[in-house]
Design a protein around this nucleic acid. Structure first.
Lengths: 264, 264
DNA sequence: CGGGCAGTTGAAGCTCCTCAACTTAAGTGG
DNA sequence: CCACTTAAGTTGAGGAGCTTCAACTGCCCG
């Protein structure tokens, strides 16, 4: 089945064929329509989820009405892992497109992880990656202005979801200005203005809840331009370069990686 | 030995006595003087570390010279877990006080985790907690102004390290204005100004690289005051409350939890 | 006792947010 | 199919919050 391909790089990595299949047999398969809720923040985490196809985003809302997009989940990724520890879901998980997901009840997943060190390691791998991701976002929020944060966010979307069209690279699911704002921690107004000027510079094309990057390199240029040269930088190890590497991989490899069904 | 007490809540949780002791026997014990480097960002992660006593912080530096304090590690916590996956250290780990740490070479830890599901689960628990921490920081950076971020950061320091003295609750290791700034993502100037006004309000006392909270509740009040009432809040699950809960536990329980040797 | 690091404080300026009015696109129902 | 409704997006003006620049104070260590 195709499902196992998606999981081969994630939860099932390093498992032999039989155990992988038995793990899959224990999963509940579920279709979720675009815009639906997979789970809700605050409720007891009853299952570990893996996205097979489509796009899910993890969202938090604050008491004063702001919304934060914590993460876009891509096919193959684990989400809802607090279920392993008998915790509560820390975020809402909401589908952006029609999705297919697998889920394992907490106890089942716990049983599997106890028995298969490789699976435990895969969970660790996943968490480690997400931690790096969040550290990187804290770094950006702390040190970079909106324009650069926006460039980074868009480049990352391009890198993981971008599909090549005649107009340029397109993000194959609805992304509003507000979504981008919630992703980089600013208001939709600034995003709107920034994209406006970027459009006049032929970097992007703007549509309703749709994002097309006409010139990926030009968007990446926003990042380069920011550090013309090092001023007094002690030759300590330094971060912020990997995003540029990420971009390069984007331009070469990852365009049109997933086939995500457009929706709503 | 006392070491095992520290670890009982962390890496060794749920292990029977014999295996716990054999795990400890495989560890290398290491004293690190205040201000020294445990490991450096970018170098191959060769060992998983656990802090036994003292304080370590994880730090990142950006190309344009900013510094971010990613985390204060407290006794019992695991750090350097990328070693498990054969990655590179993503941050510098630098001691704030004299420290005692244990470390396991990557392969050894990998061997242990493969053999003891409980240990794998403990690593997962640790990563999960750190992920929540970082998500919370992203939320704060995105939505809250400096004064509230500062209040939260200080309350968290109080919660995990605070010691009750006659002046109030003290953070038992050196914390500069720059440190606080790097923790909440702003400049030392804003921190300085904010602490100034807080001192006139008898909330804190200011010293050189030393922080005393005279009135914990008053500092927590900064957070309450921020959301006078909900404006249009849909009754969706909401975040930002747990920080207040955190504070309450701070006021009651956690003062004087660790005995950290002051240094430098 | 002097040099340097940590911290304070003022003033100016820029980035971003807020408020507000308006435009455009996508449904919705008669 | 077209008026109506609603959501998404744009753009301007004003102002708050934070950064930057700069000058200065006080503390600690050699």
């Amino acid at each position: 089945m195709i499902v196992s391909d998606v999981l081969a790089t994630g939860l099932l990595q390093g498992l032999d064929k039989e155990t992988a299949e038995s793990v899959l047999l224990l999963a509940e398969r579920r279709m979720v329509a675009a815009g639906d809720i997979v789970f809700t923040a605050g409720e007891p985490a009853c299952a570990v989820h893996v996205l097979v196809s489509g796009v899910v985003h993890l969202v938090q809302c604050t008491p004063n009405g702001s919304r934060i997009i914590v993460k876009y989940v891509r096919p193959g990724e684990v989400f809802g892992s607090p279920a392993l520890l008998g915790r509560f879901y820390p975020t809402d998980a909401i589908t952006v497109t029609d999705c297919l997901e697998l889920q394992w009840p907490s106890e089942v997943m716990r049983w599997l992880v106890d028995r298969n060190p490789a699976m435990a390691l895969n969970v660790i791998r996943n968490l480690e990656a997400r931690l790096r991701e969040m550290e990187s976002r804290v770094r950006d929020l702390s040190t970079e202005p909106v324009e650069q944060r926006l460039a980074r966010a868009i480049l990352q979307l391009v890198d993981t979801y971008g599909q090549l069209t005649e107009e340029g690279v397109e993000i194959p699911f609805p992304v509003s200005r507000q979504d981008l704002a919630d992703l980089i921690g600013c208001t939709l107004h600034v995003v709107s203005r920034t994209l406006s000027t970027w459009e006049t510079q032929r970097r992007v094309k703007r549509y309703r809840r749709r994002l097309v990057i006409a010139d990926v390199e030009a968007v990446a240029g926003v990042l380069y331009g920011s550090q013309p040269q090092v001023r007094e930088a002690p030759s300590l190890p330094v971060h912020g370069v990997e995003a540029i590497a990420t971009f390069h991989s984007a331009a070469k490899i990852s365009i049109g990686r997933h086939d995500v069904n457009n929706a709503t």
